[in-house]
Design a protein around this nucleic acid. Structure first.
Length: 479
RNA sequence: CGGGGCGUGGCGCAGUCCGGCUAGCGCGCUUGCUUUGGGAGCAAGAGGUCGAAGGUUCGAAUCCUUUCGCCCCGACCA
């Protein structure tokens, strides 16, 4: 069997990514341009992501529902910014049942409009608020340049849509969700993120305020990994979401929307993956530990499999997601590489020598080679495995955080900013004017990512124009 | 939409300039035997209307015309 290596990340990061997605068996190209097929292994990862989020949403009072994929075109025209933002990437259905449609239908690129329409119908009284609905599904945006998981025409996500009686309550909701997103990234995905506010130009089409979590990829580019928007009454006015308040006056509702998409899988790949392939954080890994039995003949096979089967059952009952690789047609060396490509956090090798000594070999995915390989006793293996999985999880977060922090710079002036964003992020004072942002985009190829919350009360001068400014922003090249 | 490249078994390609016999090669796949502690070896097989349509010719993957599709680089986004 020939070697089937990835290019290294340093050689060609884009190509490394493309091949990794295919070879790790997470997704494949669909026959429709820009679309992907999420394969069972990739979907299992997505399910682990969604089930954690779904539980958190439900615990904070949200309920799930489903709205149609097709949206009347006229709905998009009701909110001026929204239509301008999404018009270029709409797919439109013009025919149905062989007849041309009187009103064209858009394939949803997001659901604010149709949900706004329904909310107007459902919300009549302050007693109907808050309304906290989450939709899990897919949306379609006619993207020009696509990349598996990162930017595909159709992608999977949840979209939360909430309506509230007051602006404060709606803003609170926006922040509450962003906190859940942050916790997901830190605790589950092992990806450090910055929470903050988007600039006016980076804001969601139709939003009053857009907040985001921003993560640094291995190539030091930024990836917006989740967003949470406060709409004020923009959509309520466009769709007439009105209710009678306690004082019997007619009020517009305050709404929000928020999302994390299957793009987060791209982030997992680009933050944790290495030159051998994927590295799954244990808490999200579809397979947390894989057992590779090793033997030369039937006699050895019998002895090895007996122990391997026992260990498999033991780990399974300890709620560890364990897989037995009993394929006979590939060598154990092939299996090692294969599971490394797929990013399984822990490999358990059991061979004749282990049977003699009552041990197994444990190989950590996050530490390749001998460094990550230890021999441990077969007894109490479930505890050893759980412990190691926890250790891998926290070690991945630590590594990613150190890497990110080491690549954030504090340039002295605009010239230096242009330099540092070629291979890192800049964290600088910015006057929050669109002109300075535009200049940065044109001359440094970097955009503002977000203005992080909780900044020290300190004044500085805008890195671009030198005017006094109150807050710092992250500048980076972004996906 | 502008510029560059490509369509040949599942994947990657050669062959095309200069038409000629059963269209090759590598990987993968199937079967068997030997292997298995870092991407195994040998043997025997299966698999292709050469992107599509039309034309030239005794004869087209190859020449001509038309057409479809894909990839890469410049205006958007989770």
């Amino acid at each position: 069997m020939a070697e089937d290596k990835l290019p290294t990340r340093a050689e060609d990061f884009a190509e490394w990514y493309n091949q990794l997605v295919i070879k790790s068996d997470m997704a494949d190209y669909a026959p429709v341009r820009g679309c992907m097929v999420v394969k069972p292994y990739g979907w299992a990862l997505w399910e682990n992501i969604t089930s954690w989020l779904d539980r958190e949403f439900k615990e904070t009072g949200h309920v799930n529902a489903a709205f149609p994929t097709l949206i009347p075109m006229s709905f998009f025209e009701k909110e001026k910014d929204h239509v301008e933002g999404f018009a270029p990437e709409l797919a439109v259905v013009t025919h149905g049942g062989g007849e041309e449609l009187e009103e064209k239908l858009a394939v949803r690129p997001t659901s604010e409009t149709i949900i706004g329409h329904m909310y107007a119908k459902w919300i009549k009284s302050w007693r109907d608020l808050p309304l906290l609905i989450v939709q899990w599904g897919s949306v379609l945006r006619w993207e020009l340049r696509t990349k598996l998981f990162l930017r595909t025409a159709e992608f999977y996500w949840h979209e939360g849509h909430t309506a509230h009686a007051s602006a404060d309550e709606a803003k609170e909701e926006m922040y509450r969700i962003l906190d859940i997103y942050e916790r997901f990234c830190l605790e589950e995905a092992a990806i450090p993120v910055f929470k903050g506010t988007k600039s006016e130009t980076e804001r969601f089409a139709g939003a009053h305020t857009t907040t985001s979590i921003e993560a640094m990829m291995w190539d030091k580019r930024a990836l917006q990994s989740g967003t949470s928007h406060y709409f004020s009454t923009n959509f309520a006015k466009a769709f007439e979401i009105q209710c009678l308040a306690k004082d019997n006056t007619l009020q517009f509702a305050e709404t929000t929307s928020w999302a994390i998409s299957s793009r987060i899988i791209g982030a997992l790949i680009m933050v944790h993956g290495d030159d051998q392939g994927m590295v799954m954080p244990p808490r999200l890994a579809p397979i947390q530990a894989v057992i590779v039995p090793i033997y030369k003949n039937e006699n050895e096979k019998t002895k090895v499999m007996e122990v391997a089967d026992r260990i498999f059952m033991e780990l399974k009952s300890a709620k560890i997601r364990v897989k037995m690789d009993d394929r006979e047609n590939v060598s154990s060396g092939f299996k090692f590489n294969d599971w490394e490509m797929r990013g399984v956090p822990l490999r358990i090798e059991i061979g004749p020598k282990d049977i003699e000594k009552g041990t197994v070999a444990l190989a950590r995915r996050d530490k390749p080679g001998k460094e990550g390989k230890t021999f441990v006793s077969q007894s109490l293996l479930d505890q050893a495995v759980s412990g190691l999985l926890d250790e891998i999880q926290s070690s991945l977060l630590k590594r990613a955080t150190e890497y990110r922090d080491a690549n954030i710079h504090n340039p002295k002036d605009f010239e230096e900013l242009k330099q540092v964003v070629q291979d890192g992020w800049a964290f600088s004072y910015w006057c929050e004017s669109t002109e300075c942002e535009k200049k940065t985009k044109e001359e440094a190829k970097a955009t503002t990512r977000n203005i992080p919350f909780n900044q020290p009360e300190q004044e500085g001068t805008c890195i671009v124009c030198g005017k006094p400014s109150k807050r710092k922003v992250y500048f980076a090249r972004a996906y």
